[in-house]
Design a protein around this nucleic acid. Sequence first.
DNA 1: AGATAATGTACAT
DNA 2: TGTACCTTATCTT
Length: 270
Amino acid sequence: MPEGHTIHRLAEDCLRLLAGWQVRASSPQGKFADSAALLDGAVLDGVDAHGKHLFLGFEGAGWVRVHLGLIGKVTFDGQVSDTVRLRLRGGPHGEHTMDLRGPAACELITGPEKQAVHDRLGPDPLRSGDDPRRAYARISRSRVCLAALLMDQKVLAGVGNVYRAEVLFRHGVDPYLPGRALTAPLWEAMWADLVTLMRAGVRDNRIDTVRPEHEPAAMGRPPRRDDHGGEVYVYRRAGLPCLVCGTEVRTAPLAARNLFWCPSCQPPHI
DNA sequence: AGATAATGTACAT
DNA sequence: TGTACCTTATCTT
C-alpha cells in the first residue's frame, strides 16, 4: 500500500523495532544477497523517509534505499517465505523481523547518493519544515493539469493516486485545471489538508479522507469500507453515487493511472 | 504524452 | 487463467 504515509510509517516502525541494535541481514530471494552480507552484523543507526523513498542507515556501511513501487510490501510478522528481498532481524533479543517483498528498488548507497535523491524530490507534506511554496513555484508555471502535477514527485513528494484524487475532491477542484490557473491561497489550503490527511494516514496506517458529516452512517447509508481498508470519496468508486451530491463518480486514465472525480462537485474550469 | 517493463499478491472468471 | 494494483525508470513518438 505504497503512498507517502506508508513509507513514513515504515520508517517509524523500523526506528522503534530495529534501530539501535545490530541486525542480521539476509536476502532469501537472492537479489540483494551481496549487499545483505555487507550489512549483516551492522547497527541500524538511522531511518529517514522522503516521499515514497525509505532510507535505512547502517553504521559504517551507508544507507539502504527502498522504494516499494506499485506492489512492494513490508511485513513484520516473520512468516517464512522465499520471496523476501531483504530480511532484517534485530531488536534487544533479536526478536523482531522485517521482511521486504517485491520492491521496485532496494540498494545500498552512500550519503552523497542519498542526498542526490533528496535533491530531485519536491517538498513532502510529511517532512516538517518542507516548504509548499517550492511546489507552487512549479505548479504556477505549468500548463500541465493538476492531477498530473500532484503525482509528479519532482513537484510534490509522497502523494499518489489515492491522495491526489481525494485532495482534489475535498477542495472541489477540476482535475484537468492547468497548474498555472491554481491560486496561491487554494494551493496553501490543499497543502495544509495533505499535511493533516497524511499524518492521520501514518497514525492509522491507511487512507481515510471522508469528513464525519459525509460518513455513510451520518448519511443514512450502510457502512462501507473500500478495498484498501479506509473511507474515501472518489478513489475506485467509478459509477457509484458521490457521497456528497449523488452524481455518478467518473473515471479516466491520466498520466498512466486511473483518475476518479465527481463531475458536479469538481466542475470543469471555464 | 504514451507505451512498456519490472516486481508479488489478491481477487475475479 | 487473467487482471488490477496506493509506482516509476526508460524507452519511443
